[in-house]
Amino acid sequence: MYDFDYHKPTTVADAVALLAADPDAKAVSGGHTLIPALKHRLNKPTSLVDLSGIAEMKGIKQVGNAIVIGAFTRHVEVATSALVKSTIPALAYLASHIGDNQVRNRGTIGGSVSNNDPAADYPSAVLGLGATIHTSSRKIPADEFFLGMFTTAMEPDELLVAIEFPIPEKAGYAKMKNPASRYVMAGAFVSKGPAGVRVAINGAAACVFRQAEMEAALAANWSPEAVAGIKQPADDMNSDIHGSAEYRAHLVTVMAKRAVAAAG
């Protein structure tokens, strides 16, 4: 780790001001992605802006027909929230299967979604439920948020403040874990509700994406069988020592089928 300055603002405005003042400053939320990167000296921020003291970034609440989750909400809080479990059980299920206890006790939804790791869990729920991202300066629909590997529509001095999830009629999530890291090899988050029928695929490609053919099939016939025969082309799938592009493409179909079955 290299030396850095440390700030702990108490408002979003102060945090944004600190980030705007220094292009090499970085926000730190749960730190479960950023701190390992610092320890490996892969990152050299001049200062860290700790988000843990900002009350307006915390908590889970229902606003109309949506669940709004503050960016600084730990995975364990989403996993165990009675509100989330009763309104979007698939989201609580997803959160309860991120990493292990230590990871869930530290990692936050805002950190995970801002980071947009292709193998992360949350981005599939955000895209698969058609959520809206509330940042320090605007609202961004999920469909416009995830731009590519580790890349989002946010500016460097923009902060993710909360995520607004419309409550779906049905939703389900299934993933195949990478045997080593236990991040996602291929996953599918499916839902039917105010945002239409959605199938978001994570883990398999460079960035979470919607599977249009499966969405159309499910819109016509919401059942596991409807997606079971749909083949994901392998062209843009990831390929590494854990699995080929063909394997991941195959898993996309299997996970979509399981996610629909889980959604009921």
Partner: peptide, 11 residues
């Protein structure tokens, strides 16, 4: 015998 290897055998 990783999942990917077994799947490719079956597949």
């Amino acid at each position: 015998a990783t999942p990917a290897k077994i799947w490719s055998i079956i597949h």
